[in-house]
Design a protein around this nucleic acid. Structure first.
Lengths: 144, 144
DNA sequence: TTCCTTGCAAACGATTTGCATTGGA
DNA sequence: TCCAATGCAAATCGTTTGCAAGGAA
């Protein structure tokens, strides 16, 4: 999706945030990944060319501007992925052994079921839903 | 549930783990809570009578024996709740602002839908599911 | 006596921040 | 020029661990 970067540049331009070379590399690494990535993982993905502190800062900024969304997984590490308005809605397979997260896309009719589940669960009026996440926890093929 | 403690004592007894006064207090605090609690929150709940290190150790042991199950939420903190074989299956409302987590129990027919979603998503054979978690993310009434 | 548990302090790992420097519009 | 971005090091925060003392079986 060459278009994804266009959308990101546009979003960032609106708020005076620069789409620097480092951030471009970060975004491309995330685009290639098949699931959310932590700062440490991105550090390796990028050949340790960008210091961790810069990665953390960029991740925080891109999170705040909703270009990325965080995923809080096993072992207290935060992983980030492109926000759903860029990638489309999806869910996660989470390995409870190594913490790896893979994306999965549910068939549309099943997703409709999920939506109705969410709606019926939040009809109390005491909670204002922004989204939902179906996390399927188990053991990945690497750890099995 | 006076019966819950019986079940826990029995489970611990099988593995030479003691149900000490501190752990009893911890379990009772979790029983009263309406959602998963972090070590720091339990520390406060218990009037700071049990040091954090003891709480962390007990939480780790009770996790390993599957009396508790962990929830990895906002801000990289781990919260624990009684395992589902003690409390029944349920899901979570997660406040993306303050990190608070509340339990919700889905109507049985909707839960059946969820089960079928999970089954259809994991039919690839490359992932071995242990459970699922539907996290509904949004803003709680406190933060709204 | 034999282990498990507890407390305190030190150690750790992930993440954040202060500060001086660099770089782009 | 002006402000955002970067790099390094130090600081924070949640969590873990070493070790010696306390307690239950």
């Amino acid at each position: 999706m060459a278009n994804t970067e266009q959308l990101i540049m546009q979003r960032l331009g609106e708020t005076g945030i620069r789409y620097s070379a480092g951030r471009k590399a970060l975004i491309r690494a995330l685009s290639k990944a098949d699931g959310p990535r932590s700062a440490a993982e991105l550090y390796e993905d990028l050949g340790r060319t960008i210091p961790l502190s810069s990665l953390y800062r960029s991740l925080a900024i891109l999170d705040k501007t909703e270009v990325l969304s965080p995923h809080h997984g096993v072992k207290g590490v935060t992983r980030y992925e492109l926000a759903e308005w860029l990638t489309g809605h999806h869910h996660h397979l989470v390995c409870i052994s190594c913490g790896t997260v893979d994306d999965i896309t549910p068939p549309p009719d099943l997703e409709a079921d999920l939506e109705s589940v969410v709606k019926s669960l939040t009809s109390s009026g005491r909670f204002f839903p922004r989204g939902h996440a179906l996390e399927i926890e188990g053991i990945c093929s690497e750890c099995a």
